[in-house]
Design a protein around this nucleic acid. Sequence first.
DNA 1: GAACTGC
DNA 2: GCAGTTCAACGCCCC
DNA 3: GGGGCG
Length: 624
Amino acid sequence: MVRALASQPVATAIVDGEVVAATPAGVPSFERLQQRMNLVAESKVEQAEIEYPVAYYAFDLLYVDGVKIERAPLWQRKEMLCRVLDFGEVVRLVEPIASAGREIFRALVASGLEGMVAKRRDSPYLPGKRSPSWLKIKAQQTADFVIGGFTPGQGRRASTFGALLLGEYDADGKLQYAGRVGSGFRDAQLEEYRALLEARRRKRSPFAAPVPDTQGETYVRPNLVAEVEFAERTSAGQLRAPVFQRLRPDKAAHEVLQSGAEESSPATTPAADFSGQAVDALLAQLDRGGAALTLVVDGESLPVSNLGKEMWPAYEDAPPVTKRDLLRFLIRLSPQILSQLRDRPLTLTRYPNGIAGKMFYQKQWDQPRPSFVETVSIYSEENEGASEYLLCNNLGTLLWLGQIADLGFHTALARVTPGPDAINQSTEFAASRAAVIDSVLNYPDFLLFDLDPFVPAEGETASVKNTLTREGFAKSAQVAKWLKSTLDSIGLRAFVKTSGSSGLHIFVPIVRNLDYVAARAAQETVAKLVVAAHPRDVSMDRGTRAGKVYIDLNQLGRTRSLASAWSPRAKPGAPVSMPLRWEEVGEADPLAFTIWTAEQRLRRSGDPWAGILEAKQDIRALLG
DNA sequence: GAACTGC
DNA sequence: GCAGTTCAACGCCCC
DNA sequence: GGGGCG
Ligand SMILES: [Mn+2]
Ligand SMILES: [Mn+2]
């Protein structure tokens, strides 16, 4: 190899590349390379050269004959690299592949390769730096393993366990050690599994050979099966980057045989978004320290930065919410949030410097974006043409929104997709204003009653404001109940959530056969009944609202948007717009629903808004 | 927060 | 290279 | 009708 490089037709050049050793099957292996690099004696190297043929794969050129070119765009550096070096058996060129990234990735995973590096065509060379322009995309694997024991935990986990010792049965029916897994467990799981392990505890190791690199381990009867995700198996029988997914009570231990690993899909599937496994794996990634890191979400890379930045300052008893805290919240609540955002054009409320800093709204996104972020092309009056609007249809996008400091998720009340309740409208939005008017985007899924109590004066202390908020909320709750009984009396089912401060949002899911104008007229009819019954407490007119609750019908419009259920709000204390059961209206404290408490609330009370889109009602029939 | 624009 | 700019779209109020 | 505010 040294000979091949020395005979190049160039005086001086700095080339970046990798020495690669092919296995007999032709699949490059990082491990074989390391073996080869550990050989130092010259004779051994020569012998190895024959046994393990190696090649130098050049992929970048930084310097050639006195000229630094590291700032030139990648495609130019590649072009020069081609011209500068002679390529042959030993020195090879890493050929760029300009398109079809997903197809290539699938093919490479299928052939057992580790992953690939995606680079922007126009990116400069950044030595040793993580860059959003260069993304390492890994193939993830999952497999089932028999649990043969556990290691003691440290610190907070001293009372449970550190890692599970994993094994697989070989052809002789012997349990062979296959590595360990210590991350991906929720606190509750640690306790639960420790109890399961305790019940199976035994003196003798179930493994055929001693377990390497452990001390103080406890062995168990090998009849529990765990599903584990990992990046790679090393030949020493370890797993690289293993993350626990779940127990497999449905699988018998004797079914766990060696070399049964299955590839997971790199694509974003709804199943992956909504599985607890994806959630646990991501939380484990985020728990690695540092102000910046690259998350792997469903096989795609997402760089995140400024993880320690306070997006919400400390408020009353609650600690500040950092960007890392926000991302954790988004991961944990992702099934709820995503179900509310799906297929609805977004309005971002962005606070790059936290809620105290300058904010801006953003709807159109004509900039570069991660490949998993979906957009839809919609005609915009302002632009006199189509622009790209963002959709949040997967976990990666949700976390990306967190990264770009979108602290409140506002959506349209109409979706971009048709359905059994909207079969005649088009899904063509780009051509003209008229096209949008004729499309599903002009047909909302809900009537929306936005109840805004009159809350006097700004500039008070936090505790005075909280009192005023609670008083305002009590009035909203009263009006909400009156509104509900009115809706009940005409046979309409409604859903209610807190707005995130003192107001309430009441949604009535409807069949999409009324456009925004007709829907607004329908809810005006209902609202007038409530105002007529309680004129001293309710108003539909901003001017005469002092001391009353204002029913704001303006929020239902084609170009309007509203904070979604389960969305955080960019207000002090990091409140969350929380779905309520009707029995809770009047009792609930809206300030108690925050980024810190939302998950516990979900686990305890469930999601009162789950299935809201399956509760649609045909009010056109009702209106006659 | 990130891309683009203009000096 | 670095500073500055941009990032919705309403109703409402006031001039 | 336009500018500023939220
Ligand atoms: Mn409101
Ligand atoms: Mn309002």
